[in-house]
Amino acid sequence: MATDPAAFLLSQLEPDADHRDADRLFREAGWQPCGAGDWAIALRSPDGEVVARISPFDPTGPYTAELYRDAAGTGQVPTLFAHQRLAGGGDLQIMEWLREADEADAVAFHALIADGTPEVATLVDSIRRIHTRAQAELPWCGPLDENPSNVMRGGDDRLVLTDPYYADGPALYETAASDPDAVVARIPAEERRFMTEIPLTWSGPWAAEAREEMRRGLDAADARRAPQG
């Protein structure tokens, strides 16, 4: 089966593996880059049927994976073969290969979701229920993402919704730069170790100096917080 090689690779990841370890492991097995966004890169399997989405820092990853599993019966989300959190706040999802959808079709699909029409009612229930919990649990959780690029087509040509949840990057990173103590107080160090290493393919580039300055600010805030336990 197409997923067997991915399952074998996942079994080779150490418990403390981060996004670099995952990226290296899959590339050495012949998986090829096939896309990148602001939060993650994608590697496609040698047979072309499966994709690994690897993020250095993605707080919403577990909620997205939960949606894919919860709404799997609808056929309106990608088929998720595996999900694994990575050290430092990263996220790894193994899913079916998807291709771009026509923008008009994507906009229409988003409209169906926004209206809660019967044909997407089960999907909408899952989206809203999980999003409500994400907003309660996750610092800087953004609203639902209605970007047309988040609607794609599966191998059987069906329309699917991807990545509807996201951390409010502009607000989060602006706070990290201007008030790092606020970020340190709300996101544990282990869950943000690589937050300056997201690709920012669409919103970037992100100067190395700015990344380093943010890291120094967060490190200093961690040091100030350490005496408080």
Results as ranks from 00 to 15, higher is better:
R99S: 15
T196F: 02
L25K: 03
A42S: 15
V184R: 04
R158L: 03
A42G: 09
N147P: 03
R192T: 06
G154A: 12
P180F: 09
W31T: 06
D222C: 11
G90M: 12
D145T: 09
A65S: 12
A6Y: 09
G217C: 05
D70A: 15
V120W: 01
I54E: 05
G35C: 10
R27S: 09
P56F: 06
A65Q: 01
E146S: 08
L10P: 03
A2W: 14
E197V: 02
Q12L: 15
A208Q: 13
D47H: 04
E103S: 04
L92M: 11
A171I: 06
D145R: 12
E49I: 09
V50Q: 14
V183Q: 04
E174P: 00
Y173T: 00
W202K: 15
D102Y: 07
Y165C: 06
D58G: 04
G229R: 04
V124A: 08
P180N: 10
A223L: 13
N150A: 01
W206K: 01
S203G: 09
D16H: 14
V51R: 07
D179M: 05
F57Y: 15
I41S: 15
E174C: 01
E14F: 11
D219A: 14
L92K: 12
R85K: 14
G73F: 03
R85W: 09
E191T: 02
W202Y: 14
R193A: 14
R44A: 13
A29R: 02
A182V: 06
H19S: 13
H131R: 04
T196G: 09
I94D: 09
D125N: 10
E212S: 10
G48T: 09
L86S: 07
Q135E: 12
A167L: 15
E103L: 04
A114S: 09
W31R: 03
V120N: 03
V51W: 03
A167D: 07
D102A: 14
A7W: 11
P188H: 07
P5C: 07
P56M: 08
T3H: 13
A111D: 13
D115P: 01
V160R: 11
P188T: 11
Q93M: 15
P180E: 06
I187H: 00
A223V: 10
D105E: 14
F194K: 03
T132S: 08
I130T: 01
S126I: 01
P227W: 08
V77A: 05
A171G: 02
A220P: 01
A22I: 10
D163G: 02
E119W: 04
V51E: 07
Q228F: 14
P227T: 05
I130Y: 00
P118F: 06
T196L: 07
Q12T: 13
M214I: 08
C141D: 06
P59W: 05
Y68K: 01
D47R: 07
D179V: 03
G89K: 05
P33G: 08
V120I: 07
D115L: 12
E191I: 00
R211E: 09
Y173M: 12
R129S: 12
R192F: 00
C141N: 01
L67T: 02
A101M: 04
D168N: 11
D58Y: 05
T3L: 14
L10V: 07
M95Y: 08
R186K: 13
A111Y: 03
E146H: 12
I41N: 11
F8A: 15
Y63A: 12
G142P: 00
D157A: 13
A171K: 13
R20H: 13
A111K: 12
Q12H: 11
E212A: 15
V50F: 10
R44N: 09
G90W: 07
